[in-house]
């Protein structure tokens, strides 16, 4: 039995050691905001926060995540940075199909909180490894800066 702390709640999950955190979240706990796009760490759709920092849930055996504080997009409904990002993503048309969005939001939030969202070049560099196939990224880059401005006020 695996013991995982997710969005502040303890879970006991009858998962095999080989299951990735992404798989456990999605298929055992129904937390499907975490999406799988490549299972190789290349696309960023599966980002979750571990102890506050984004990691790839597809590259983390859930067994390794025991004892850590895991947060998914579902756990950030009341987060101020996420609220600013949601508003900015809609205003800047930073999503189309929505599949990359959760992972993108978590990466963007981290950029803002680490102070790496001052200009477009910094945001673009910081979004390395976050693939979006729909938008061409301009809306995302604008939205991250917009949210950063909102939060700095």
């Amino acid at each position: 039995m695996m013991r995982l702390t997710i969005n502040g709640t303890g879970h006991q999950v009858p998962a095999e050691p080989r299951e990735s955190l992404a798989h456990v979240l999605r298929d055992r706990l129904g937390l499907t905001a975490t999406r799988l796009g490549c299972a190789q760490g290349s696309c960023g759709a599966c980002n979750v926060l571990v102890d506050g920092s984004p990691v790839r849930a597809c590259l983390l055996p859930a067994s390794l995540a025991e004892g850590e504080d895991i947060t998914t997009l579902e756990g950030l409904r009341d987060d101020a940075a996420m609220a600013a990002l949601r508003e900015a993503f809609q205003a800047e048309h930073a999503l189309q199909c929505g599949y990359c969005t959760a992972g993108m939001l978590l990466a963007a939030r981290d950029l803002i909180l680490r102070g790496r969202a001052h200009d477009a070049a910094q945001v673009r560099a910081g979004l390395a490894g976050q693939l979006c196939r729909c938008t061409g990224y301009d809306g995302i880059v604008a939205a991250v800066q917009r949210a950063a401005r909102t939060l700095s006020r």
Binding site: D27, A33, T34, L73, F89, T101, A102
Partner: peptide, 20 residues
């Protein structure tokens, strides 16, 4: 602004692999 956005921004979009 697109009405589609809200569900995705909350992680509430439903894609086929989410279903069981």
């Amino acid at each position: 602004p697109r009405r589609e956005d809200r569900r995705h921004l909350l992680g509430q979009g439903v894609f086929a692999a989410d279903l069981s």
